[in-house]
Simulated scan of single mutants.
Amino acid sequence: MKNLRQEFIAFSVQAGVLSFGEFITKAGRTSPYFFNAGLFNEGANLGQLAQFYAQTLLDSGIEFDMLFGPAYKGITLASSTAVALAGMGRNVPFAYNRKEAKDHGEGGTIVGAKLAGKVVIIDDVISAGTSVRESVDMIRAAGATPSAVLIALDRMERSGKDDALTVNSAVQEIINTYQMPVICIANLADLFDYLSSGQASQFEQYTAAVRDYRAKYGSQS
């Protein structure tokens, strides 16, 4: 599992999805790294990404019957992960939502398989947790059970202003609120291990910045 996490970090760097430098986050913080899953925009790297999602989900031991991808990034993530799972011998249905209800044809906001059984929500990251909350509501409204959230990278980051940071990260808040696990392919600790391992000498100058950022904003778990 540790190797899979490090492989994912290296893959994200190679794909240009994980970058180092100075980036302003939605919270207005200056971050030494930036993860943009929207740059998994080619067939080959999306297929490889789906392999990481699928293997992480199977390794977690979580029981699940289907996948759900919240619009918009979650749509391709859920569908490609379903393909990857099928290739690993686990054929499961998937569904996703549209932002606006369709008033013709099949109608409604849910596209794909009927929401039923234990559903895993697949997204890229959890920032404010809005898409997860909306997904949970839709899944429960359909009579199904949200069983877990699967994301690519857990920033392990507390929210709030510098003088009033929350105790928990957004991921921890989802876990506490809905009493369900959040599974990540990798997290900030794995990123720091990657930078400290010596296998990314070209980014060595950012190791201290990532360490300081983690010390200032990072959650304890």
Rank of each mutant, 00 (worst) to 15 (best):
K99A: 10
D193A: 14
Q55Y: 03
E7C: 01
V132C: 07
F40I: 00
T130L: 01
G21H: 05
L39W: 12
A141N: 13
L58K: 02
Q51P: 03
V83Y: 13
V136C: 00
S60Y: 10
R98P: 09
S169C: 13
A54Q: 06
K99V: 08
N187W: 09
G47L: 07
K73Y: 10
G160V: 13
N41Y: 10
S196H: 07
F20K: 03
D137Y: 06
K161S: 15
F64L: 07
N3G: 13
P70D: 02
P181G: 10
A71F: 02
L195P: 03
N97S: 14
Y33L: 08
V83N: 01
F8I: 12
L188I: 04
F68W: 01
R5M: 13
G21E: 06
P70V: 03
V83K: 03
N36M: 04
D59M: 00
G143S: 08
Q220M: 14
A78I: 00
R158D: 13
L4N: 14
Q51Y: 11
N187E: 05
Y206K: 07
S127W: 04
Q202H: 11
G108N: 04
S60W: 05
G160I: 11
A10F: 04
T130M: 01
N45R: 14
S169M: 12
K118W: 11
A82P: 09
F40D: 01
A144Q: 00
M156G: 07
G218N: 12
G47E: 10
V182G: 11
K102E: 11
L188C: 08
V120G: 01
N41C: 15
N91V: 13
E157Y: 08
F20R: 06
G43M: 10
D59G: 09
G117E: 09
T56G: 11
P181A: 13
R140C: 01
S79R: 00
T109N: 12
Q179V: 09
I175S: 11
K99F: 06
T76H: 06
A208P: 02
F11Y: 12
A95L: 04
T25D: 04
D162A: 15
F11R: 02
A170G: 13
L58D: 06
Q48G: 01
F52P: 06
R158A: 12
G129E: 08
V149S: 11
R214A: 14
C184R: 13
M66L: 03
L49S: 05
S201R: 12
K118Y: 05
K216I: 01
K118F: 03
I9M: 05
